[in-house]
Design a protein around this nucleic acid. Structure first.
Lengths: 149, 149
DNA sequence: ATACATGCAAAGTTTTTGCAACTCG
DNA sequence: CGAGTTGCAAAAACTTTGCATGTAT
C-alpha cells in the first residue's frame, strides 16, 4: 500500500478494492485511503484524522476509527501497538520490521531477509497455528540522541 | 524474576532490591512483587490488582499501576503491548519471545537461540542506538482452535 | 429503495494525576 | 522527623457504540 500514483490511479485502485470487498466507496474512505498511501510514518488514528480533515473538514474521529478498523479487517493495513499507548497503523504491506524510538515513539521500517528465512523452533508447532511475525527493535533514534547531547 | 522460593527468601531478595534502587519497602510493593514472581502468564495491571487484593484488600488500582511502572523503570519487569488493548507485564528476564493468541490474548514465552545469535542488518546502525528486541508470533492457540472445531 | 455509512453525542476502557493522610527508614 | 508512598476521587487519553440522518449502489 505505498505508491505515488496520480489521484485518478488511486481512485481506480480504491474503487476496485471496494468492489472486491463489497464495501461502499465513500469520500471519507477514499481520503483516508489517500492519507495512508502517502504516509511514510505510521500514523495514529488521531493523526490520520487531522490529515483527512484538511480535505474533508466535516469528518468525525469515530469515522476514522471505524474506517481504519474496516481496512485492517480487509488486510489493507496493519494495526500496531508500540510502547506509545495509542495504536498506530501501518500501510506498508511488504515484509518488514520496526525500529521504535522510545523517546519520540517514531516508527521506522526496515527489512531483514535473514530473519525472513529463519524458521522458528519446532516447539511452537505444538502451541497452535501461527499466522505472522511481529518484530520490533527498540532504542533511541538519531534525532533524539542529538537532543540529549 | 521467576523462582519458587520461600516467603522469607522472597522478602530478603526484595529488601535487597529496594536498598539497591533506593525505594522504600512497603507491604503493597512486596505483595505485587510476589504476584509477579508467581505468574506464569503475563498479567495486566487489573489482573495483578485482583490477585494482590486477596492479600492486601485495601490496595488501590492506581498503586498497582504506579508500582508496575516503578518496577519497569528499574528493569525488574517489562511492559508489553500486544493486540489486546491493555498493557501486560512480563516478569521473565531470560531472553525470550512471545506467542500471542489473537482469540484469547494469552501470551506464551518461547526461546529461539538462532534468533538471539542473528545480527541485525547494519543499516540500522545509522538509525540510532538500539536497546532490545521484541518479537511476537501471532496466531491461534491450541485451546482456541479446539473451541472453533 | 435499501442496506450500508456517517456524524453526533455519550459512554466505555485503560491509565494517569493532584492531594491529603500515612508510613518507612 | 521527613521524604517517599498510598488511597481516594477525579480526570485524562484513547476507543467504541447507539441512533437518527444521509448516501452509494
Amino acid at each position: 500500500m505505498q505508491d505515488s500514483k496520480s489521484d485518478l490511479q488511486i481512485l481506480n485502485r480504491f474503487r476496485q478494492l471496494c468492489q472486491r470487498f463489497g464495501i461502499k466507496l465513500t469520500y471519507q474512505r477514499l481520503e483516508i485511503f489517500r492519507v495512508l498511501l502517502s504516509s511514510d510514518n505510521h500514523p495514529s488514528a488521531e493523526e490520520v484524522y487531522e490529515r483527512v480533515k484538511e480535505k474533508v473538514p466535516t469528518i468525525s474521529l469515530d469515522t476514522v476509527y471505524r474506517t481504519l478498523s474496516t481496512f485492517e479487517q480487509l488486510g489493507l493495513i496493519r494495526k500496531i501497538h508500540g510502547p506509545d499507548d495509542r495504536a498506530r497503523f501501518d500501510p506498508n504491506n511488504k515484509k518488514h520490521y520496526h525500529l521504535v524510538c522510545l523517546k519520540c515513539y517514531k516508527i521506522t521500517d526496515f527489512e531483514w531477509p535473514e530473519l525472513d528465512n529463519l524458521s522458528p523452533p519446532e516447539s511452537i508447532n505444538s502451541w497452535g497455528k501461527t499466522q505472522n511475525y511481529y518484530l520490533e527493535i527498540r532504542g533511541i533514534c538519531k534525532d533524539c540522541l542529538k537532543k540529549e547531547e
